[in-house]
Design a binder for these strands. Structure first.
Length: 455
DNA sequence: CTGGGGAAGGGGCCC
DNA sequence: CGGGCCCCTTCCCCA
């Protein structure tokens, strides 16, 4: 028999203990502000703390202290409140930083919720489009605030439970000129205890995407390996006056018009979702019989793209999402093509150019050198200058190319296996360099086969 | 401190 | 719609 309220009450008690500084054995210092918490709770909630606390001293009588500069005390307050209550107080103003902090702290649930929060606002509803059908572009783009006002009626939350700990201005907030409703997330385990908080429903598309990306984020490595969005940059961009980027303004049409009837993009929950991209028609297509040409407006900045897919891609630079990890070095990329490029350049030494003298080399006139997980080519002369005698096999460098922590996609990292059969390793005597004879023709074939993370 | 080069980020657009 | 290529810009490291 299971008493569903037990978990909720347990968490409540822990939260109460935290507030009263009872049994707190961990101090978290964020930009000078000290937060008290329980090691056990932090350990259970955050991959970062799990790592930190498991690596740290086993001594439990001394309080552990962690210091962070990567996010603000306010952001950590949101995170810590979530840890101890299951309620994530997201607003348009804090979602980026909260997600960044969650990424740093390896809290995949929070990341997912932040992503859902952001993504859920990206859908275009037919209803909303109708609403803007006759908007002039100037009305739409000349003033982000105006636009926010126009949008706000459609996505203001109607069922968000009141949260007394919020400051009044958190009721709705502005982000990039748009008004955002508050967003509360209650883990499934707590939803029963909450007042029938409507669950955040995702469209099939989103569910698929989100589940997939969630699994990717489960593979986050050390926080230092996890790139974070540049909040300041984002804020700068978001704060840019609309006229700052002239290109979209100039190209954007006088009349805003929506795409012809489309499918797939609908509000899942009208209350929590808002139209975040605006389709407008370019100049010269004013005639009603012209095929409507879409332009999609980024809700975070003034960028306008022609295709929804391009907007989706662009948004990753705002959300910081990097779903494509390089399995050789762990570096994560927001897109597949830069990853492929990185992989070819850094780990496959595809450039037939001597890294030292920049001359073109072939398999006859040069060799591949491996340094850690990096590979590059050196011509025989430069190789001789470097002193082949001083170069040895680095078995560490050959073997490490497995990344069990990342179950992303079908990422099959065959680098260390398949390549080895094709290369002849010249062993020498120095640090961590490996010279390899590589058959270029096979290298190309292998390049096709061994692309990381490519489905 | 500065300039050059490599790597990565990001947009446009084709397939 | 995703993958991928091209191009330009930005960032970072190093001499």
């Amino acid at each position: 028999m299971e008493i569903s309220s037990h978990q909720f009450h347990l968490l409540q008690q822990l939260n109460e203990q935290r507030r009263q500084d009872l049994f707190c054995d961990c101090n978290i210092l964020v930009e000078g502000k000290v937060f008290k918490a329980h090691r056990n709770v932090l350990f259970a909630s955050s991959g970062y703390f799990k790592m930190l606390l498991s690596q740290g001293s086993k001594e439990t009588t001394q309080p552990t202290t962690a210091t962070f500069q990567a996010f603000s005390p306010d952001t950590f307050t949101v995170i810590l409140d979530f840890v101890y209550s299951g309620k994530l107080s997201l607003t348009g103003q804090n979602v980026i930083e909260v997600m960044s902090a969650a990424s740093y702290l390896q809290m995949t649930d929070v990341i997912s919720v932040c992503k859902t929060f952001i993504k859920s606002s990206l859908d275009i509803s037919e209803k909303e489009k109708d609403r803007y059908f006759s908007l002039s572009d100037k009305e739409v783009n000349s003033n982000g605030v105006d636009r926010a006002c126009l949008y706000s009626t459609g996505w203001r939350a109607e069922s968000s439970p009141p949260r007394p700990h919020l400051s009044p201005d958190q009721g709705t907030c502005m982000m990039g000129g748009n008004t955002w409703s508050n967003f509360s997330y209650y883990p499934a385990s707590q939803r029963n205890a909450q007042q029938q908080q409507p669950p955040q429903q995702l469209s099939k598309h989103e569910q698929r995407q989100d589940s997939g990306k969630k699994s990717r984020h489960l593979g986050l490595q050390q926080p230092s390996d996890v790139p974070h969005y540049k909040s300041s940059k984002l804020e700068d961009r978001a704060a840019e006056p609309p006229g700052h980027v002239t290109q979209p303004e100039e190209q954007v049409p006088i009349e805003a018009e929506v795409e012809s009837p489309h499918v797939g993009y609908q509000y899942s929950q009208g209350a929590d979702v808002m139209p975040r991209s605006l389709a407008v028609k370019p100049p010269g297509t004013g005639h009603k019989y012209d095929l409507p040409r879409m332009r999609f407006k980024c809700p975070f900045c003034t960028h306008v793209v022609k295709r929804k897919a391009d907007l989706k891609r662009h948004l990753r630079c705002h959300t910081g999402e990097r779903p494509y990890p390089c399995e050789a070095c762990g570096k994560r990329f927001s897109r597949l093509d830069p990853l492929s490029s990185h992989f070819r350049t850094i780990h496959q030494a595809c450039k037939p150019i001597c890294r030292k003298c920049k001359r073109h080399v072939t398999e006859l006139t040069g060799q591949v050198v491996q340094e850690g997980t990096r590979r590059y080519r050196l011509c025989n002369e430069c190789l001789a200058e470097a002193g082949i005698d001083s170069i040895r096999i680095d078995l560490e460098a050959e073997a490490p190319l497995e990344f069990p922590q990342d179950g992303d996609k079908d990422s099959r990292w065959q680098y260390g296996e398949d390549n080895r059969s094709d290369v002849e390793i010249v062993e020498d005597g120095s640090t961590d360099l490996v010279i390899q004879q590589v058959d270029d023709s096979e290298d190309e074939a292998e390049e096709k086969e061994v692309k990381p993370n490519i489905r």
